[in-house]
Design a protein around this nucleic acid. Structure first.
Lengths: 168, 168
DNA sequence: CCAGAATAGGAGGAAGTCCGACTATTTGCA
DNA sequence: TGCAAATAGTCGGACTTCCTCCTATTCTGG
């Protein structure tokens, strides 16, 4: 972690924006920049927490997704839909998980185009251990009261719904 | 943009989490996952908006940072501190901006180790045009009222301050 | 003053992501 | 029924980021 800056660079950007283009565009610019920076901080911390388990956050997400399915298996394409990552990224992620013996590829019963990723016992064990550690670390999220966390999720969910991320 | 899912995958993950580990760890997990997903959505949209100008979001950020300095120039290392990206990423970003004639490298007056990145007239012109487009698109942020945007920024700023991102 | 530590920038490599092209298979419509 | 279109997964390439050195320069303490 680098030394903290002696001032808030996003706050300074907001002042410049307001001076030049007014408060109206400065508001969403500030919110978006804050999201970018917080995501960067959280991702770095999560990967740090997961490193000891030999996982990255995308791989952890894939593992947990398989954990929560009935059969412990899911077609690769569906994994991509759920995690919102590109098909080729899913291939890459599953490759690594398979190399580590956490997942195995299984042919689909009815559709011979499709391949299922099925979590192994080792995968379940590792997912459980990693989750306990992330839960204990509050998923690297600090500085918010429980009600703040709820409010943050509610605001972000509104953005996702508007963006067409899901329906309902 | 892929078709929206018929349900909220983060909400479903939260239910699974609550069933298995209780509501306490499920809350930050939900907030963190929402941040990850919203960042992904916003970054994709911003890059889409900037593509017509030949920019990516990190390059745009660097260009705007230089715009707002007195002299229009800044050492590469300081750019990395401000944008919170690795030194080698700054080298890469400035390389591309320099290739496009938006920035030029200038030796530092007093410290011969240091190199300044100085914005060119073309860089200022492009930065202005790109900013007008991003401002008009509200920085790709939709689904929030002005007060919501302020609240979102306040919550995220709290996370950043707690993480030691800045002091004050 | 000068040797060692610290700092600035860069080169090369590893990892992750997206895109386009490709093969194999399935679906749908005429 | 049969053939074009859509779908599932993979491969190679381009891009971005970070990490580990490496060189040149500046700072610092004896």
């Amino acid at each position: 972690m680098p030394d903290p800056l002696p001032f808030d660079p996003i706050g300074e950007a907001r002042r410049h924006w307001t001076d030049r283009w007014g408060p109206e565009p400065a508001r969403p610019m500030t919110a978006v920049t804050n999201i970018m920076r917080v995501q960067q901080i959280l991702l770095a911390r999560l990967n740090e927490l997961l490193r000891g388990h030999g996982l990255t956050f995308p791989r952890y997400e894939a593992l947990m997704l398989l954990c929560f399915t009935r059969s412990g298996a899911m077609p690769l394409g569906k994994i991509g839909d759920r995690l919102q990552v590109h098909r080729t990224s899913v291939t890459n992620i599953i490759d690594k998980l398979e190399q580590d013996g956490l997942v195995r590829r299984v042919p689909h019963d009815r559709d011979r185009r499709a391949t299922l990723a099925e979590i192994t016992d080792a995968g379940r064990t590792l997912a459980e251990a990693a989750t306990l550690e992330l839960n204990a670390a509050a998923f690297a999220l600090e500085g918010l009261a429980p009600a703040d966390e709820e409010q943050l999720s509610a605001l972000l969910e509104s953005v996702r719904r508007t963006a067409g991320d899901f329906e309902d």
